[in-house]
């Protein structure tokens, strides 16, 4: 077995006195697609936000292969190699779509503008919004904004992409275009960890489904096995609720 790309061991996190993540262990191989699901407040978002250190954690370790520095440099190095897509897009509202995409490559990776722009246009073309490059985010629909956010993250050439409920703030008719983009990304071999409740997406692309509840990973299984024959009592309960609504 090859060295995993990401290894999480014994992760524990508290919000004040609330024990938010409890002894989480997970390793992700290069090219693997993970879907994380679970009831709200179960720590899914917190888990993936810990991976790129947007949240600090008290105990345990999260190691990205090839990152050997310590402290602040390690954080920066991880963030450069891990892309993130947020529930609420978090595009910079005062910058054009193109500027949103080129800011980080130019400022963080010190790429010249011409190089950053041509790569950004390539990616915008790939998420099929190349013609909107000069608009402001506010002029786009939610689905388009989320696709820009995906392109923006991809501009950093990440080795791992994190998706934090990327479709739950979208109107229903826009969900599919974002999921299609994510499927395309998965088909190109990108390593992904997605927090989502889109079961169709999970069945189609996930290698493993991680079920979390109350800060703990309760079940990890291939999607077909998980959705058709959940074994943990809480997984069954959760899927039951999901299906009946």
């Amino acid at each position: 077995m090859t060295q995993p790309l990401l290894t999480i061991t014994g992760l524990n996190k508290w919000f004040g006195e609330y024990h938010a993540l409890r002894d989480v262990d997970l390793s992700v191989a290069s090219g693997e697609r993970i879907v994380v699901c679970g009831p709200s407040g179960s720590g899914k978002s917190t888990l993936i936000r810990c991976i790129n250190r947007i949240e600090q954690f008290e105990q345990g370790s999260i190691v990205l292969e090839g990152v050997t520095e310590k402290g602040a440099r390690q954080t920066e190095s991880i963030r450069r190699q891990v892309g993130m897509v947020f529930q609420h897009f978090n595009l910079f509202p005062h910058m054009s779509v193109l500027d949103n995409c080129t800011l980080a490559p130019m400022r963080s990776l010190k790429q010249p503008r011409a190089q950053a722009e041509s790569y950004a246009r390539e990616l915008l073309d790939r998420v099929r919004i190349a013609d909107q490059a000069d608009k402001l985010p506010g002029q786009l629909s939610g689905g388009q904004q989320q696709r820009v956010a995906i392109a923006r993250a991809l501009c950093m050439k990440p080795r791992l992409m994190l998706f934090d409920e990327p479709t739950s703030a979208l109107d229903p008719e826009m969900v599919q275009e974002v999921l299609d983009t994510m499927v395309g990304l998965a088909e190109d071999g990108m390593t992904m960890i997605c927090v989502t409740h889109e079961m169709g997406f999970a069945r189609q692309v996930a290698d493993r489904v991680v079920f979390m509840d109350r800060g703990q990973i309760l079940e990890v299984a291939p999607p077909a096995a998980f959705f058709d024959h959940p074994e943990h009592e809480r997984s069954r309960e959760f899927l039951g609720k999901l299906l009946h609504h």
Binding site: R79, R80, N90, P93, R107, S108, A153
Partner: peptide, 24 residues
């Protein structure tokens, strides 16, 4: 969310302030 996005993109703090936070 704006701060978080800049963190996720590994932007240096000076750029974050000047290009993202102050204009808004």
């Amino acid at each position: 969310g704006q701060w978080e996005a800049t963190e996720a993109l590994a932007l240096p703090l000076r750029t974050v302030r000047r290009s993202v936070i102050y204009p808004q």
